[in-house]
Amino acid sequence: MAAVELDSTNGDFEKLFSAKAKELMARLEQNDLTGAVGLIQDLQKVRDENLYQEIGQLTRALHESIKKFRLDSSVQGAGSDIDEANEGLAYVVNMTAKAANTTMDKVEESMPLSEGIASSSAEINQEWKRFLKKELAPAEFRDLTKRITVFLESTDASTRKINKNLSDILLAQDFQDLTGQVIQKITTMVTDVEARLVNLVAMAGHVDQLTGINHGKIEVEKKEEDLQQGVGPQLNAENEEDVATGQDDVDDLLSSLGF
């Protein structure tokens, strides 16, 4: 990788620099001013050459990164990796919404069917118990047998429909596989972008060294969470002290406040 190569050239430069500095001291001690000035010019030249080299490498790495992630918006319709990630995440939202809706459709369709079976069987059961206790009149019994026939037929149809719906619900979970793949791809991309950025920063650091530029400590702006707006689900609730880990925790907190 470019960074490794860079380190070595930088190392050479440092060695040369310190060797020349010692030589410079020696010349000054010997009152050889002309030689000393010549050395300083040499040093300047080496530094300039190194600087150009470093800048060249930095520029190349930048170009490569832009090419790699297709971030160059001047190329129409190229679709950068960021665009692709956005599209991927929109796909995840759509897929999960579709699966949730399909599942709820099927559940809403199935619930009245199972409720129907439950209420009919409860009714028939009551009559059946009366029959076993020989409390049913012949006309009532004839009525019961008719109701049992209807019940058996409708239960057959209802359970088939419920089974079909359950199987559809099962299939609706296929989003997990598809969205998982998309998210994994985006995770890889983000990690890659991060690694390249870190590399670019390291290369730029060498340029700073050679030019003697000191940026001071770069303050990384801490992103203030807007609790009023809402910050969304906590991904590591267990490890954060200021986060409720579950409903019990919420209830404890509220009861401590007099709820």
């Binding site: 609790l227 200021d242 986060v243 409720a244 880990t245 907190l253 406040l257």
Partner: peptide
């Protein structure tokens, strides 16, 4: 009914 789980938020809601 929310995913917001910061203690400060729960106190603020209360």
């Amino acid at each position: 009914v929310t995913a917001e789980a910061k203690r400060d938020q729960i106190v603020a809601a209360a």
